[in-house]
Design a protein around this nucleic acid. Structure first.
Lengths: 96, 96
DNA sequence: CTGCATCCTGAACGATACTG
DNA sequence: CAGTATCGTTCAGGATGCAG
């Protein structure tokens, strides 16, 4: 279970799950702008790579100039997003 | 939702939730021994106090010599424990 | 027995500058 | 545009010793 929580152990991962579930694929720059300067490129890249490693997102690089990289949610990612929704619902009842 | 995850943001909190759901109340020393030296007094005290502050456990001090302190799970604690079970189930299916 | 005080380490995250 | 490289800060958690 801790293993599951580890998948969202990362400051921006829950939000990334949310944004990518809302619309996939999304470009790196788009995601960066969605956070409005609250997160750095460094950190965003890091968290996306970890999520890719965990099988939550897929990363597709297009050989173009300028470069384009798109991130999409996997089935596992969508499933985890649904679980997060459960958790959110619990919070609504017990925390307010 | 992050607010909910914050309640178990703490290395030993999920385990404490588990042990206290299994049997309440439990003494401090008992909990400490359950972890078999993997956690220090310092950290265990800290996490229990945070859980108390979050309304997950109640702390009862008995004015005896030697001192006795017992921790119990609250209704909210049991409820969170149930949610953790949901999370665990998800992990079984998607992580193995 | 329980827990507080102090010090310390490691990992997460941010700031900034540079590159294909 | 989408990174990588470095460095600095913060903070959870551990080690150890002391106290009621």
């Amino acid at each position: 279970m801790t293993n599951t929580l580890d998948l969202v152990r990362g400051k921006w991962k829950p939000a990334l799950l949310y944004y990518l579930a809302e619309e996939s694929p999304r470009r790196f720059g788009t995601l960066l702008r969605l956070f409005g300067g609250l997160v750095t490129q460094h950190t965003l890249t890091q968290q996306l790579r970890e999520m890719e490693h965990d099988g939550l997102v897929t990363r597709v690089v297009y050989a173009e100039v300028p470069p384009r990289v798109e991130y999409s949610l996997t089935d596992k990612g969508y499933s985890l997003r649904a679980l997060m929704e459960q958790i959110y619902q619990w919070g609504e009842q017990h925390v307010g």
